[in-house]
Design a protein around this nucleic acid. Sequence first.
DNA 1: CGGAGATTTGAGATGAGTCAATCGTGGTGG
DNA 2: CCACCACGATTGACTCATCTCAAATCTCCG
Lengths: 234, 234
Amino acid sequence: MEHSAKTMNSNLKLSNRDRSVLMKTPFLTGLSTNSTLRMLSAMSVVNLATRHSIFREGERAELFYCVLSGYVRLYRLSQEGREADIRICGPGDTFAECLLYGEDTYPYHAQAAENATLATFDIQMVREIASEEKDVAQAVMMVLSRHLLTTMNCVANDRLFTAPQRVANYILERCPVDGGPASIRLPFQKSLLAGMLGLAPEALSRAFSTLRKSGVTVRGRAIQVMDVSNLRNL
Amino acid sequence: MEHSAKTMNSNLKLSNRDRSVLMKTPFLTGLSTNSTLRMLSAMSVVNLATRHSIFREGERAELFYCVLSGYVRLYRLSQEGREADIRICGPGDTFAECLLYGEDTYPYHAQAAENATLATFDIQMVREIASEEKDVAQAVMMVLSRHLLTTMNCVANDRLFTAPQRVANYILERCPVDGGPASIRLPFQKSLLAGMLGLAPEALSRAFSTLRKSGVTVRGRAIQVMDVSNLRNL
DNA sequence: CGGAGATTTGAGATGAGTCAATCGTGGTGG
DNA sequence: CCACCACGATTGACTCATCTCAAATCTCCG
């Protein structure tokens, strides 16, 4: 079908950029040649159009994923159909990797938030490889640790900070560390950032306008900060 | 000092209950005899009095922990001194294990929420053991996966549900699965449950009284549910 | 240039936090 | 065994943050 060819396309041809992201994944860096080859044999690549569903909550899990380009949204649905984002994955991020040693069904929905290229890994095969190749097992542990750390951070941020504070944190994490002026560019739509921070889009908008008096200017995806060290005092 | 002997006491003598919990930890179940012995050699046991601090955010991390009895509170502080719980660990739970392959400082505070017995593991040593013994590496991956899954669940719950819904979820997770009446007993103070659900104690109290009209009765630590399947429709 | 979708703004409703006072309970010591 | 005390839990009053719905605007793409 014309449609499915456009929205999902599996092959092993990678753009140079995608290949470079792939090899820089904590998942594949520092592996022996042999381990790398084995991992690549468990891997495929797919292209996804914006809003394309990757998997649904409750589906049997056979693959986990690594984002090469674009962004992916992981979310849950309430009974009434309200959506809550759990995590936004960008280039280099891995998701559903916790199923390597956990349940056998996906615990949330995943959807391409924009056109995206993903590497898929066969869970069964990687589990096998990890049990034989120490460097792969170590890579898995590193990825899991890092993911766990950022997720606990997310809980803490949600519970400790207000919307403007969370937005300020997001900006500061992406600014050159010194004081003075800085400017960054959002890599995605604001509605995605809102979900990432656990906010409704309207709340993000209002948070930005609150931050105006702290020297933050927003025009489209461009964000300018008059004085980074000033913003750091919340 | 009399005081420190009372609040912190390191030895290798375990009560039968503690030993049984320890061996049932995902961390130590299913290991070969040799791996088990090596893990035990990286381990100590400590007793802690209520409110005793276990480590502070930013401290250099040399140990990770497994709760044998009692409860431990992991939390962050805001500038103004407000506390936000990130996780409550009970018997069998592991914490700071994400530092095996991550940063080298603790990313949050840890405190005994009541008298507790903990197993401590030397991070450096376990890292070494995991790199040599496959079954240990696998155990680490299982623990990390499970922890990650529950933490993502926590984010989803916080973002999707109101206080009464979160409390209902907590109760339902601990009820026999069928319908009809049920009763459970809280294993700790209500203020701890409040923190676990990301609520102020007052909010938990109000949530309980909201749930009264759904057939939930609370007296001290005892919770009675008139009809489980009824409560399940939020 | 047109238009669909994204973003902003306004107004109102609601959920949850804070502070303070009261109530209940369990543990301690007489 | 009882009385008391200290601390946890509840309740009320109020404030604040964020969501929801609706309308107005903006922006980017074709």
